[in-house]
Design a protein around this nucleic acid. Sequence first.
DNA 1: CATTTGATGTTCT
DNA 2: GAACATCAAATGC
Length: 206
Amino acid sequence: MSACTDSNNLLPLSFYRRQDVTLIARELLGKHLCTQIGRDSVTSGKIVETEAYAARGDKACHASGYNRTERNRAMFEEGGIAYVYLCYGIHNLFNVVTNVGGEPEAVLIRAIEPTHGIDTMLRRRNQEEVTPKLAGGPGRLTETLGITRDHYGLSLQSDKIWIEDHGSSIKSVDINKSPRIGVQYAGEDSKKPWRYTIKGSQWVSK
DNA sequence: CATTTGATGTTCT
DNA sequence: GAACATCAAATGC
């Protein structure tokens, strides 16, 4: 068993295939994102920051208006797979595809609190000690976990990337809601409070 | 400290 | 050719 804890904790496909992406984004807080890449040990951390995106009524979404492109094709699939894309020519950003097929919605994972495989994560990021810079921010997080576009479209029940529920759910009162980062181009939709963080966590991006 | 800039490569117009 | 769901290093106080 290569999982960081117990495969009984694996998030089921039914979690991803629900119709409310902002609910899923909030419920992903406190879950554990895990990877096992190549011959490296398992690396994982607790999700502390997410953002929701939807094709319907959200100009910030890559699939806004149900516009199909080569890049966003994974978002049109059934929920429960990875949508990874290159941002600013440098960074791979990792999203969880949600909802049913043909209804493109996704949750961008923006920060984790590192928990397992610390040595491997420090090596990947060329860091000496664990700080919020290690995995706080969507580009840092993928580098820390070894996620690249090679994992585009990969199932989140695969043995490379998966998400576990360790039983803690974050209460609504403990979630901060704010506008999403870097989406001014979306006009009015940039004001939607679809960025979610765990209140008081030192691990969220700055 | 805060703010600016340079890096980098797809995608879409 | 412009824009881009970013980051680290350099510069300005």
